[in-house]
Amino acid sequence: MTEQTAAMTTNVQSVSIPVADQDRALQFYTEVLGCECRADVEVWPGARLVVVAPPGSDVALLLLPANSEIPVAVRLGTADADAAHARLREAGATVHNAEVLRWEGQPPMFAFTDPDGNELVYLEES
């Protein structure tokens, strides 16, 4: 494994869980499982982002409707989203964004799939 490949992924930030009802899921994960709610926001009209995690955990769970515009995916951290995007395209991976997305208030990011079709997202860490 090359140093470039080894350093491309820095951590697992979050894992999405598809849910039928975000309110019901939020109640279950917080009141039954003991997770804390880290975010419950509308990131754009009609796109609600609910984030929970066990206390002290660095990895969060995103409770998303299966039909959400926010991808149900594993979110990974990377030090350089542009370099990771180029590396995946060079490797022939299915990259869903022609270029790294740069939305106001959000880290640079892009979505892709692994060889088995699992959805992944890279988010650049600051």
Rank of each mutant, 00 (worst) to 15 (best):
V72R: 03
C35I: 01
A7M: 05
D23K: 05
A20D: 13
R89N: 09
A39Q: 09
W44N: 07
A25K: 14
V72P: 11
P54K: 14
D80M: 09
A20C: 05
R24D: 07
A47R: 14
Q27K: 12
G34V: 06
R75F: 07
R48V: 08
A86E: 15
W44Y: 13
R48F: 04
D23H: 02
D80P: 05
V19M: 04
A86R: 15
P45S: 13
Y29D: 05
D82L: 00
E90L: 08
E36Q: 03
E90P: 01
M8E: 10
E31F: 08
A7I: 13
H85E: 13
V59P: 03
Y29S: 03
L76T: 00
R75T: 13
V41I: 10
V15A: 14
D23P: 07
A79Y: 03
A81I: 10
A66P: 12
I70C: 11
L61A: 07
I70K: 04
A79T: 08
D23S: 10
G34D: 14
E42P: 09
A79D: 15
P54A: 15
S57P: 01
L88P: 11
V52F: 11
V15E: 08
A84C: 09
A73L: 05
P54T: 14
I17H: 03
E31H: 12
L62H: 11
A81H: 11
R87D: 15
V72M: 02
Y29G: 06
V12Y: 06
A66L: 10
A47V: 08
A20N: 02
E42G: 01
V72S: 09
Q13I: 15
E90V: 06
S68V: 06
C35T: 07
V43L: 10
L64D: 03
A7D: 06
C37A: 05
A91M: 00
V51K: 06
V59I: 15
A81W: 06
G56H: 04
T9A: 13
Q22H: 10
R89W: 02
Q27S: 11
D40L: 06
V41N: 13
S16L: 10
A79L: 01
V15D: 08
A73F: 00
R87S: 09
G92H: 05
T78S: 10
G56Q: 14
A47F: 08
A91W: 00
R48H: 10
P18D: 05
E36H: 07
Y29Q: 10
R75L: 00
V74F: 03
A83G: 08
L76E: 07
V51N: 11
C37K: 11
L76M: 03
R38D: 13
Q13Y: 12
T30H: 02
V51T: 14
V43K: 09
V43W: 09
